[in-house]
Amino acid sequence: MSLSESRLTRFIVHVTLAVLLLITLFPIALMIVNSLKPSAEIVQNPLSFPSDLRWDNFVRAWSDANFGRTLANSALLTGLTILLVCSTGSLTAYVLARRKIRTWKILTFYLLASTTAPIQLFLFPLYFGFARFGLINNPVAVAFIYTAVYSPFAIMLLRTYFLAVPKELEEAALIDGASHWQVFARVFLPIVSPGILTVALIIGLYSWNEFLIATTFLQGQDQLTAVVSFFLLSGQYSSDWGVIMAAALIIVLPIVILFVLLQRRFIDGMAGGSVKG
């Protein structure tokens, strides 16, 4: 729904929204402008436009942050997490949506509780436990941590998609002699695939950006994710801020492009479950 208002109200509204827009875009603009400037020009004035575009910053950022390696690490970790969350999550969401097991209520409570558990509540024993089993610097192990952390959210979101599948479809398939697995794989999965895509995008975003777990469990030079590599690079006192901003853009750009292209999925998915009627 929308409101129609007087001209004055509309004017005030647009000015306020524009001010908020500027506040939002200002730091992003600083990142873009300064990614193309030499260090000396940034020190002089971070607001000025580059006198000539220094694309070289991106070349240096690529090698300084070891992006050839770290971006691949991030991509692998993200892909693995998406795969794990979507496969295990859709199975559980199906069972919860259709109340296939008697303990569905307990399971739901357990999953809801684990979405609000602070990472610190399980981080320390997990770290020292992983260390004992030689699982530090192991991206597969980290993908499992992400899966545990993000699954409850993914399941709650997927559940709403499974709920929307008509019961008659399932019954018809069962009468035709389909097994339960076939009903899940052949009837449900194709119908809920938009939901799975949404979940994949959001879980992908979370894993790509994740900081605390990645910085704790992946510390070897060759195992760093792009975000952690950026964090370490930008923490050095001697760093060139033009190069740092270029490195930031390299990580952010693919995400922003995906987001702008698929904004409805991102926004509806992330907001999903939060709007109460």
Binding site: L17, L20, L21, T24, L25, P27, I28, L30, M31, N34, P46, L205, W208, N209, F211, V227, V228, F230, F231, S234, W241, I244, M245, A248, I251, V252, I255, V256, F259, V260, Q263, F266, I267, M270
Partner: peptide, 25 residues
């Protein structure tokens, strides 16, 4: 349009947002 712009900071990694504010502001 406003909604998409306002949402942009949410999708940028915290490590990057932190450093942009630290270094550029």
């Amino acid at each position: 349009f406003f909604q998409v712009i306002y949402f942009l900071p949410v999708i940028i990694a915290t490590a990057i947002t932190g450093r942009v504010w630290q270094g550029m502001i």
